[in-house]
Simulated assay, not measured.
Amino acid sequence: MALFIDTFVNRIDKKGRVSVPATFRAALTGQNFNGIVALPGFRYDALQCAGIDWMQKLVEKMGSVDLFSDAHDDLSITLFSEAKQLAFDGEGRIVLPEGLIAHAKLVDEAAFVGRGEIFEIWQPAALEAHRAEARRRALEKGMTLKNGGGAQ
């Protein structure tokens, strides 16, 4: 499983090309597709991204939703119809399609944000506002993770 941590801000050139952070590319090594999958975020003006293996997990999870139901139809069209496979070029860049650029309100920079098994691409100022608000909510609610019992 790929693991994405840290935040990186990279420039977007006039052709929509942006370098995916080297650590993110390294986490995707060995997958069936040499690139990423990106789709518009559901809750925020950001892009949700991962390797093709993550998309395969989503397909498998769709098996738990009744085929031909409204829920299956809504989820499948939302998840897969706007998802894009974006191949790495020789320099580790991807080309962001106009629709994804518009959704995330990207102009000349993109913030790559590790979120564990996925990463997101944000407009940098929007990310900072979101991160501050998320931190405030987490602290206000006293959110913590339970200790898993330590190392074995």
Rank of each mutant, 00 (worst) to 15 (best):
F8W: 12
D45L: 12
W122Q: 06
W54S: 09
F24P: 00
Q56I: 08
A22M: 06
E128L: 03
T29D: 06
Y44G: 01
G149S: 13
F42H: 13
D74M: 06
L106S: 05
G51W: 10
G99S: 05
M143I: 14
G99C: 05
A102H: 07
G41Y: 08
E140H: 03
C49G: 09
E120R: 04
S81Y: 05
V113P: 02
D89C: 05
Q48L: 11
A26F: 04
L86V: 10
R11E: 11
G30D: 12
G41K: 01
L127H: 07
G51C: 09
L79F: 14
D45N: 15
F80I: 12
L86D: 14
A132E: 15
V59A: 11
N34I: 03
D89Q: 11
E140T: 05
A125C: 01
G116C: 04
G148P: 11
Q85T: 10
F88T: 07
R93M: 05
G63H: 03
G92D: 03
V20R: 09
E117A: 08
R43T: 14
G41M: 00
A71T: 11
F88Y: 10
G148A: 12
N10H: 15
A104R: 02
F119T: 05
D73T: 07
M62P: 10
S19P: 06
V65S: 06
M1S: 13
G51T: 09
A110C: 04
A129E: 12
I52K: 02
